[in-house]
Design a protein around this nucleic acid. Structure first.
Lengths: 247, 247
DNA sequence: CGAGGCGTTGACACCCATCAACATGGGTGG
DNA sequence: CCACCCATGTTGATGGGTGTCAACGCCTCG
C-alpha cells in the first residue's frame, strides 16, 4: 500500500480516487533491505521501478580517489526509477542507510504500464519533478553557498520532507545520519563538517547530539540557510531585460 | 513540430507512431525570445509547460549576495516544466542566452492533458528522468571534483548533448557561453575559470578562443573528467555489504 | 578488556576567492 | 574614420575557506 506516496502527493495537489485506485492496483513485490545493504550497484543493469515503503535509501557515487558523493536521499513515498526508465546501467549506488522496505513494480514494459495505469504516469511526472527541484536546490547549495549555509539548508530540507510524511518534527528527532553522511552530502570533509555543526550549534539554531536533531531556533536556521525567504527582490541585472514583448 | 524532442528521445529508446502523433497534435503557442530575455522570473507564478524549439535557455538562481548559479541549460527538445507541474511559484529564473523559440503547451489542467495524450506522459517521464540524471551528475561534480575536472566534465556533457540533436560537433563549434557563464555553472569565480581554461588548453585537450570550442584530444578530456569511464571497479567499501539475500 | 565506529580539536597546506590593473575587440556616436 | 565605451578575457598579489594529517576521547559491542 503506497500510502506514504499518497500522503506525499496529497501535500501538494489534489489526489483523486482514480489515482489512488491505480496506485493500489499496481502489481508489486516487496523487498526487505538491512541497513547498509545495496539495492543496486553503479554499473549494474537495472530495469525495474522501485517505490520506497520505509527506511532511508542513499543514491550515491563512489569516486576513483576513494571519496563518495551522496546525491539524494529517498524517503518513504519516493520513487527510485531514474535509470531504470532508460534501460541503461545505473550510474549510482542505491544503498539502504537504515533497514528498509521497497516495492519493486512489475515492469515488463514501462510503456504499457504507463498506459494501463494513468495514475502512475501522473504520480511519476509529479514525483520526478519534485525530486528535480530538490536536486536543483542542491546544485545551488554546492555551487554558491558556504558550508554553514549548506548544512543549514540541508537540515531545513530534511525537516520539511520528514514532516510531509510523518508529521511535525518538533523538538527532537532521531536521524540515521552520521556526520560523515552529512559531509558526503555537502561536498566537504568530515572534519569540516564537525566544525560546521559546531558553528550552527553555537549560534543557537540547532543541536545534534548523538544524531538526535533538535531545532532550537528554526527561524534562525532558515535565515542562515537563506531558505524560503522569497527571492523576489534581488537586484536586477542590467544584462537581463524584462519580459515585455514576449508574444 | 517538436522534431528536436523526437530526435532526442529517439536517441535513447524506441519512439512509436502513437507518441509521434500525440506530440504533433498538442496545441501549442509559439513564443519568441531575444537573447537575454526572461521567460519566467523566480517568484513568479507559472502554470504552463514549455518545450524548447531552438536556442539556449538558462535555468538559474540569483543569490542574495549578488552571485548567481546556473542550474541547468535547456537545449532544443528539452521541456521546461518542473515548477509548473506543481502550480507553485518558480524557484528559478528562466532566461534565454541566445535568441530562442519555445512552445507553450496549453495546460488548462495537467491531469486531463496527461490523460488525453498518453504519449506526452511518456515523453515527460522519460525527459525529466534524463534531466534528473544530468542534475545528479552536476551534484557529483560540484561536490567531489576540482575545478579542472568539473570544467572537463561539463564540456563532455555539452558536447554529448549537442551531438544528440545536431550531429557531430567534430572540430570547431561556436558556443554562446562566456567564461562568466561557465563560472556560474561550475560554482567558481570568473578569474579561476580563466585559469582553469588555461590549464585544459595547455594540456592539449581543448581550445576555446572567442567561444569557439575545438576538441583537440577528446580522449584526454574524458580522462581528466573521469567521464564515462565505467565506474565498476572501484574499491568496495567495507561498510557496504553485497546484495545477497535481497528477496 | 580490547577493538572499532564516531566525534572532536589543533596545525599546516592548498585550492580558490577577491581585488586590482590591464589588454582586446566589437559597437556606437561624433 | 576615429574616439570612446563596455563586455570580456587575462594576469599577479593576497587572503580566506576548506582539506589533510594527526592525535585523542567517548561509546558500544563482542
Amino acid at each position: 500500500m503506497p500510502d506514504n506516496l499518497l500522503r506525499k502527493l496529497g501535500g501538494f495537489y489534489p489526489v483523486n480516487d482514480e489515482l489512488k485506485a491505480d496506485l493500489r492496483a499496481l502489481k508489486r513485490e516487496q523487498i526487505k533491505l538491512d541497513a547498509h545493504q545495496m539495492l543496486i550497484r553503479q554499473g549494474e543493469k537495472s530495469d525495474s521501478l522501485y517505490l520506497v515503503e520505509s527506511g532511508w535509501i542513499f543514491r550515491m557515487r563512489h569516486m576513483p580517489g576513494g571519496g563518495r558523493q551522496i546525491v539524494s536521499i529517498a524517503l518513504p513515498g519516493d520513487f527510485l526509477c531514474y535509470e531504470s526508465l532508460m534501460f541503461a546501467c545505473s550510474d549510482f549506488d542505491l544503498c539502504a542507510k537504515t533497514s528498509a522496505s521497497v516495492f519493486r513494480l512489475a515492469t515488463p514494459d514501462i510503456r504499457t504500464l504507463l498506459k494501463k495505469y494513468q495514475g502512475l504516469a501522473e504520480a511519476l511526472v509529479w514525483s520526478t519533478s519534485h525530486e528535480e527541484g530538490l536536486l536543483a536546490e542542491r546544485v545551488v547549495s554546492l555551487g554558491r553557498r558556504d558550508s554553514t549555509e549548506r548544512l543549514a539548508h540541508l537540515l531545513c530540507e530534511i525537516v520539511a520532507r520528514l514532516e510531509l510524511i510523518d508529521g511535525p518534527v518538533q523538538s527532537g528527532r532521531q536521524l540515521p545520519l552520521t556526520q560523515e553522511d552529512f559531509a558526503d552530502m555537502l561536498g566537504i570533509s568530515v572534519v569540516h563538517t564537525v566544525r560546521t555543526f559546531k558553528t550552527l550549534t553555537e549560534s543557537g539554531a540547532i543541536a545534534y547530539p548523538a544524531r538526535k536533531l533538535t531545532l532550537m531556533d528554526i527561524g534562525k536556521l532558515q535565515r542562515i540557510a537563506g531558505y524560503d525567504q522569497g527571492y523576489l527582490h534581488f537586484s536586477q541585472r542590467r544584462d537581463v531585460r524584462p519580459i515585455s514583448a514576449a508574444e
